[in-house]
Amino acid sequence: MIKIKNLYKSYGKLEVLKDISVDINKGEVIAVIGPSGSGKSTFLRCLNKLEEPTKGSIFIQGKDLMDDKTDINKIRENVGMVFQHFNLFPHKTVLENLTLAPMKIKNMNKEEIEKKAYYLLDKVGLKDKANSYPNQLSGGQKQRIAIARALAMDPSVILFDEPTSALDPEMIKEVLDVMRALALEGMTMIVVTHEMGFAKSVADRVFFMDQGTILEDSSPDIIFNNPTHERTKEFLNKVLNR
C-alpha cells in the first residue's frame, strides 16, 4: 500500500534520512523505534508531506507523492495523523473537532458526519464529552479525541507520532487500548513510539531506526529477542533495563 524508495531528507547539510526503502502492506501495524534524533518523526512526517523529502519516491495507494501534479490534500484525506501534543483545535468543541474537516472537504451531509462522529466518540469512550472544549479534558482524553478526529476522515492509514510521549503515565494505557483495538480491526498503522511493550505485543513489524536509516526491519519477536545488529541490542538494552 505504501512504497518508499531511496528516500532522502536533509536540512541544509544535515542529512536526517538516508536512503530509506521500504514497503508497507495494507493492514500492517508498524512500530518505529530508535534513539532520539534518528529520524523517526521526520520519516513519518514525510509520508504526508508535512516535511518535504529531498529526493526519492513515495507511493501511497499507487499515487506518487513527489509528483507536483498530485493533490496532496487528497492524499492527506486518506492518511490520518495523530500528534504527540494532540493539536486539537482549542476554539472548537470536541464534536466540531471531529466534524470540521469532513464538513469542509467531503461531500457528505451534516447529519451523516455527526452520526459518524458520535459513533467514533463512543468507540474511544468519550461520547459524553461531545460538547466539551479540549482544555476541559485530560491528556489521555485529548489523545483519544485526536485519534477519533483522524478516524472521522475515514483514512486508510494512520500515522502516530509518539502518541503517548506527552502523557502522564496513568493515561498511557487508555490511549494504547484504543490503538490496540484499531489494530485488531485491521487499520494500517505506522507508530513512532517509545512504548516497547506496545511494539512487542501489537506490531506486525518493527523498524529500528538509527542515524537516518532503517537499520533493522523484522518481526517484533526477532527485534526484541534476537536482533541482528549490535546497535539494536545496545539500544534495547538501555531502554528495557531501566
Binding site: K74, R76, G80, H85
Partner: peptide
C-alpha cells in the same frame, strides 16, 4: 502553536480553509 496548522493540513484542509477555520479565529 505550529501544530495547529499542521493538524489542519494533515486532515486534508487546503491552506486557505486552515487559515480561515483554525488560524485566524
Amino acid at each position: 502553536d505550529k501544530g495547529q496548522m499542521e493538524a489542519a493540513r494533515a486532515l486534508g484542509m487546503p491552506y486557505s480553509v486552515a487559515m480561515k477555520e483554525i488560524i485566524i479565529p
